Amino acid sequence: MRRALKDLSLSAAVAGFVAVLVGFTSSVAIIFQATQQLGATSAQTSSWIWALGLGMGITSLGLSLWTRQPVLTAWSTPGAALLAATSGVRMEEAVGAFIVCGALITIAGATGWFERIMDRIPIAIASALLAGVLARFGLDAVLATRSAPLLVVAMALAYLVGRRWLPRYATPLVLLAGVVVAAVQGRLQLQAVDWGWALPVWTTPRFTLTTLIGVAVPLFLVTMACQNLPGVAAQRASGYRTPVSASITATGLATVVLAPFGGYAFNLAAITAAICMGREAHEDPARRYMASVMAGVFYIVIGLAGGAVVGLLHAFPRELVAAVAGLALLGTIAGGLSAALKEDKHRDAAILTFLVTLSGLSLLGIGSAFWGVVAGAVSLIVQHFRQR
């Protein structure tokens, strides 16, 4: 604990807050859609936020302190989208599917087969995958100038000033500039926040063959392919060799334990984790783990406060969230592209991976991150098959 307190810095704490801000505001609406589709009551919806916040917070906090590396977890966003598109499934049947999904994730981690797959992916492909996943956020930051030019330009100037004279505090300056401009413009909707604590609500699971096939297995597949795959790639591309099997196992166990309360699927984060692994978190890579530790603390607070914190995060204009995410990730995007295109023999495969991932292509219900890796792997096989 002493070492953790010694390694704590303002830049790490702000990076953790920005990661949580981006993670919640970018996809919490999908969570609400999923709960509504499953017929959840308002108390059950609040319990989902409680379970998801505590699950992400405890796993991020525990794994980061254990490994001394920035390990950030998240809920499965494509999994929530899958649930939001599901019809005819009752809440208790869905909970049974969540438990089975968590068991499958635990097996994938404990047996080590997922880590063995990741060890075969070259660093150029992993870096291109990371850059492709994150570049969309950079584009969104630029496009946000169409609806809020003054806000985004002010934040961009704050970023440039920070990078020139206070590089460790560039992201805090961006966030501060955005909040000040939004407040002056009257765009902070604080009056809509409903203050109150969230309480867990138990739902007794029911296991059926139809939900096993129609919910549990697809939820497991999209979580592994669309979330854990880029999550591990983000770590490898940033130079961290986090124990993959142990991390995946931890997220699976958290899913099994918290599923009856709404913790439907946990996984390694990629986009928000990149914020915690960049230079903006700390100049010393060995001290960046405190960014994900602080993110874990913020997630726990969100889980306990429930709807109040979600409402507070929604008080920020969407352009502010888009701009702070895009600007905070610029260094990581540039680093990923640099590593991806560094070696001539991997350059074609890397650029294919980057473009397919950036495209947002979705086939067979699987997102572009998976197909980006497939495109890069096919390119490597064709170009280097049986070559020394």
Rank of each mutant, 00 (worst) to 15 (best):
I117F: 10
L83F: 11
T111G: 00
A80Q: 10
A108D: 02
E92Y: 12
G96M: 03
S60V: 06
S60G: 04
G62N: 14
S64L: 06
W66E: 09
L65T: 03
G62Y: 11
S76A: 10
R68Q: 12
L65H: 00
G57D: 08
G112V: 01
A110V: 11
T111A: 00
E93I: 11
R68L: 11
S60F: 06
R116A: 04
M91I: 12
A97E: 03
I117V: 15
S64N: 04
I117R: 01
I107S: 03
A80M: 14
L104F: 03
A84Y: 05
F114V: 02
G102I: 00
S60R: 01
T106G: 06
A103F: 14
P78H: 00
I107G: 04
P78S: 00
G62C: 14
G88A: 12
T106L: 09
G96C: 05
I58A: 13
W113T: 02
P78W: 02
D119S: 14
V100W: 01
I121V: 06
G102R: 07
G112C: 01
C101T: 13
A80F: 15
V100A: 09
E92D: 15
I117Y: 07
S87I: 15
A108C: 07
A81V: 09
L83R: 07
V89K: 02
G79E: 01
Q69A: 14
Q69L: 12
G109P: 00
I99M: 11
G102T: 02
W66V: 13
C101E: 13
I117T: 10
L63V: 06
P70G: 04
G57S: 10
A94M: 08
I121R: 00
R68K: 15
R90E: 14
L72C: 05
A110S: 10
G57N: 08
F98S: 03
A97N: 03
I117G: 09
E115Q: 11
E115G: 10
C101M: 15
S64T: 01
W75M: 05
I107P: 05
T77G: 05
L104G: 00
I58G: 05
V89L: 08
D119N: 12
V71M: 04
E115C: 07
G88H: 11
S87K: 15
L63E: 04
S76H: 06
V89W: 02
L104Q: 07
A85S: 15
T67K: 12
S64D: 02
G96L: 05
V95N: 08
I99G: 07
L72E: 07
L63K: 04
S76M: 05
T77Y: 09
A81I: 10
W66N: 13
I105W: 02
A94V: 13
G109S: 01
T86E: 12
G96W: 03
M118K: 01
A85E: 13
A103G: 14
A84T: 02
M118L: 05
R90C: 13
L65V: 11
G112L: 04
E93Q: 15
I99D: 04
G62S: 14
E92H: 15
L63Q: 05
G109V: 03
G109N: 00
F114H: 01
G57F: 12
E92S: 15
L61G: 11
V89E: 10
W66Q: 15
